[in-house]
Design a protein around this nucleic acid. Structure first.
Lengths: 191, 191
DNA sequence: CCGGTTTGCCAACGCTTGTTGGCCAACGCT
DNA sequence: AGCGTTGGCCAACAAGCGTTGGCAAACCGG
């Protein structure tokens, strides 16, 4: 088998990543159905058939293009009352620098596979976070879901639907308003 | 079949509404692109061409199928501290009895026209609500947007993405957790 | 310098989509 | 009864989709 080490890197790696970049952009902008392989290929300046060669089919391309690590911070090192603020701020930055999340949300809404992937990400990555803060293990899924409710709602209105007043909010305002909510979902006693 | 009564109403009214019902269901279940006119017509037991005759094109059908009145209650008659709870409860019922809202959300995420309609509905119908409670007119759009953030986030995770722990929550639990949030977005002083 | 592998494009297939126009049957009025 | 209007279906269209297979060129180890 060819090994990429040594003299010169294979050209294919270049276009492989070009395809992925174009795919992420299109999926984020248009959702699964409207993001056509032809359009993605044109953006990457190659032939549509190359996409198939490298990623098998459209689903494979989506799976390869959208792999998300939320990189959630370690909350146990923070003072208890600041965890809400830290989380909201982290998500805000994450979402603005990474169009993958928008793609995932757009696709998750109309596509079953996308929805399941979203479930996986927010289930598995948000859960340990609740584990760090809330003592009762029984409540972890509930609290993670509540946080997802607020954070995904923010992303939905601000980055996908683009409701004007939600877009107009400055980052500090968002944090000021939402941090107490997330803080409460994470640390408040069961009502 | 059911007689529409009177001196014999034109049969067209029957199929017109049958088409709308089928369209709502399909748009809610599949989103805009995957809800095909052919499938909608089959659900309504008529020919696809009839859909075109009655509604012009697919966009026209969507526009006709999805017209939403949130029927928001008059909050000014309620004791101040109960408005949050009333709102969350109202939305919960609204969403569970009316698949139009799911359709609208699904379509709004991938379709520009859908997004604009969503902007219209939540902008125009949530805004007067803030007007009833919050004194400063300058803050009304912001507060309406914040509420949309939380309520749409709930709908997204619970009814569209169907995140298991969000689905598992009982209505009373949802109200108990989310009411204080909405209450705060509505009535708390600007942070 | 040569033969096999890689990289890429082209052309086409089969299918589904929204959309159109023509034809037929039932109805309602006079 | 006769006639226009309406409700409905059928067949077809053009366009766009994901996907496939074959063929030319570039590359690279020997």
């Amino acid at each position: 088998m060819t090994d990429t080490g040594g003299g010169g890197r294979r050209r294919s790696e270049t276009t492989r990543t070009a395809i992925l970049a174009a795919a992420r952009e299109r999926f984020a902008a248009d959702g699964y159905e409207r993001a056509t392989i032809r359009a993605i290929a044109k953006d990457a300046n190659i032939d549509p058939s190359m996409v198939m060669r490298y990623y098998g089919n459209k689903e494979g391309l989506f799976a390869a293009a959208v792999s998300v690590d939320l990189k959630l911070p370690d909350l146990s090192r923070l003072p208890r009352p600041e965890v809400g603020e830290a989380l909201v701020l982290h998500f805000l930055h994450l979402w603005e620098e990474n169009e993958v999340l928008t793609a995932l949300l757009r696709v998750g809404v109309t596509n079953q596979a996308g929805a399941e992937r979203m479930q996986g990400i927010f289930g598995e990555q948000l859960l340990p976070l609740a584990r760090q803060v809330c003592p009762d293990p029984e409540q972890h899924p509930t609290r993670a879901a509540l946080i997802a409710t607020q954070l995904l709602g923010l992303a939905l209105t601000r980055y996908v639907l683009r409701l004007p007043p939600a877009v107009a909010l400055r980052a500090e305002e968002v944090v000021a308003w939402l941090a107490p909510t997330v803080q409460r979902y994470l640390t408040a006693p069961n009502p």
